[in-house]
């Protein structure tokens, strides 16, 4: 009789935990794409083009791009051209939409900047989200690597971090600072790139 009571309590606790876990906003993992034929060790120099900004913050894409360029350079695996040089190359290549370059524009960019690949990106979310009384920051970014020899996409990945967690709901905290969430997203994308 006693064990039945204990068993019932355990089930109740497990059920409660599952329900609470369901309340969190899960960061769904989107599978990344990596071209199996591509020799990524041949990519020595890249240009990170300005990201498309789909968030409400006008300057968010520039913030995320700057952080991404610094962290990619810090891996010491790839040399990242400075943004001023990328800007000069884009102007000379008459690139109009940097987040969606044509094959001709990428080929031109290769000749001007002598880069092995270009990285384009879309900042899908950058800001705070609310769920009930809890509020937290969320960043969602997707990136593409385009090889400049042929203009084909060789890698694509996306990541979403932040959001309202169980701890935010229980303790009423405002989530992680935006810069920390941005760093988490970039680290996740770099892990995907170098895995």
């Amino acid at each position: 009789m006693k064990w039945r009571k204990l068993f019932r309590t355990d089930i109740l606790i497990c059920g409660l935990l599952l329900m609470l876990a369901g309340c969190t906003i899960s960061s769904t993992k989107v599978p990344d794409y990596t071209n199996a034929q591509m020799d990524f060790s041949a990519v020595r120099t890249v240009a990170v083009l300005p990201f498309q900004n789909l968030s409400a913050d006008d300057q968010a894409a520039e913030r995320v791009r700057d952080a991404f360029m610094g962290m990619l350079l810090a891996t010491e695996a790839i040399y990242v051209l400075p943004p001023g040089e990328v800007n000069r190359g884009m102007n000379r290549a008459n690139m109009r939409i940097p987040w969606a370059p044509t094959t001709e524009e990428i080929t031109k960019l290769r000749e001007i900047l002598e880069v092995d690949a270009v990285l384009t990106g879309v900042l899908r979310e950058y800001g705070s989200i609310r769920s009930g009384s809890a509020e937290a920051n969320l960043v969602s970014l997707s990136l593409q690597m385009i090889e400049t020899q042929t203009g084909s996409t060789v890698w694509s990945a996306s990541s979403t971090k932040g959001g309202v967690t169980l701890a935010d709901r229980m303790l009423g905290s405002g989530g992680r600072p935006m810069n920390d969430v941005t760093t988490q997203v970039i680290n996740d994308l770099l892990d995907q790139l170098f895995e």
Binding site: A67, G70, Y79, V80, P82, P177, N179
Partner: peptide, 22 residues
Amino acid sequence: VDFSTQVFSGGRREVIWTSHSY
């Protein structure tokens, strides 16, 4: 305060330092 820095080597024509502080 939130800022980033970049140092460019004139002789080597390469970025030798980047940082992000906030």
